[in-house]
Design a protein around this nucleic acid. Structure first.
Length: 311
DNA sequence: TTGTGTTTTATTGCCTCC
DNA sequence: GGAGGCAATAAAACACAA
């Protein structure tokens, strides 16, 4: 498929400035083009402005191997491949805003594994992961940040559910106790207690529990980055203080005998014993399908590293 | 096909730590 | 002051029902 001249020119520019050419060549090319464009700064600015439209540089994710046709067909690059009209193409080149590109399932899987090992990212590890995956270090950092946020949300949900079920069981126990002690107790005083037990989704009770849960969240999140009961983040986690009996923040003591095995596991795991992880080297991580023709764990890498784009 | 809700990627602004 | 973390948020990509 023939490219319009303008497009070819900008692609050439793109590859000159942003490909993994040898540093000297890159430097010379950059210098040459910058002078053509009226100076080094102008040249760089030019590339920066173009970059989003060129699309190939900022995000290093290549979707060549992504099998989901839906995704691929929506890709900005695919549209280049299939578009016939050159003018439209050029127009698209200039007016198409940069699209977000999702990581490939393989990349995500690798990142997930890495996250399981250690959910915080040291600079060297970030660089290494980025290299392995063919991503910008910043993309890796962002992924970890978002992943931590997701993890925290999930953990909060889990904690809340555990808390709620424990609370409901406690209420049930109290109710049964109360009714057996005095059969002629005031029915009205019992009614509000019975309601939430029958329906744990009852608004009033949920809000009460929410307040408690929020209090805990406040207490636990004031100091810590991530409320992290299972996360590998806290290798020497000092989070045993979270909701320990005797602690002033301890809202109520769950009747362990009342809890199911799962709940017991959950509580004991999340509240008392953060697991210890040993961080393996990346090369030790058993990653599936390492491709022979790629130096990046089988990830197709568009060489976009260390271009002019200052992420 | 389209409308809508959810998920993912990325940005911004603030805070803390060194 | 710079680097890195987090919360809040935007927006694109995706899933799915009608």
């Amino acid at each position: 498929m023939a490219e319009p001249e303008g497009l070819f020119f900008f692609r050439a520019l793109d590859s000159l400035f942003l490909s993994g050419s040898s540093p000297s060549f890159l430097g010379l090319s950059a210098l040459a083009f910058a002078s053509i464009l009226g100076g080094v700064m102008l040249g760089r600015l030019f590339v920066l402005l173009l970059d989003p439209f060129l699309g190939g540089s900022r995000s290093m994710v290549s979707f060549e191997d992504v099998s989901e046709g839906k995704r691929s067909e929506k890709s900005f690059f695919r549209s280049f491949d299939h578009e016939e009209n050159g003018d439209e193409e050029l127009d698209e080149y200039f007016h198409q805003p940069e699209k977000k590109r999702r990581l490939t399932p393989d990349q995500v899987q690798f990142l997930e594994r890495s996250f399981e090992v250690e959910n915080k990212l040291e600079p060297e590890r970030k660089i290494q992961l980025a290299k392995e995956l063919g991503l910008q270090p910043r993309q890796v950092a962002i992924w970890f940040q978002n992943r931590r946020a997701r993890w925290k949300t999930k953990q909060l949900e889990k904690d809340y559910e555990a808390l709620q079920s424990s609370f409901n069981k406690l209420l049930l126990k109290q109710t049964e106790k109360g009714s057996s002690e005095s059969s002629n107790t005031n029915q009205q005083s019992q009614a509000p207690l019975n309601a939430p037990i029958a329906d744990s989704g009852s608004e009033g009770e949920v809000s009460k529990i929410s307040i408690q849960a929020c209090k805990q969240e406040d207490l636990s999140s004031t100091k810590s980055d991530v409320l992290d009961s299972e996360s590998p983040c806290y290798i020497d986690g000092d989070h045993s203080s979270f909701l320990e009996p005797g602690d002033s923040s301890y809202v109520f003591e769950p009747d362990q005998s009342d809890l199911s095995q799962d709940e017991e596991d959950n509580l004991s795991k999340s509240l008392m014993h953060p697991p210890t992880y040993v961080f393996p080297k990346i090369e030790d991580v058993d990653y599936p399908n390492p491709s022979a023709n790629s130096g990046c764990f089988g990830f197709p890498v568009e060489d976009q590293t260390f271009g002019f784009w200052s992420y």
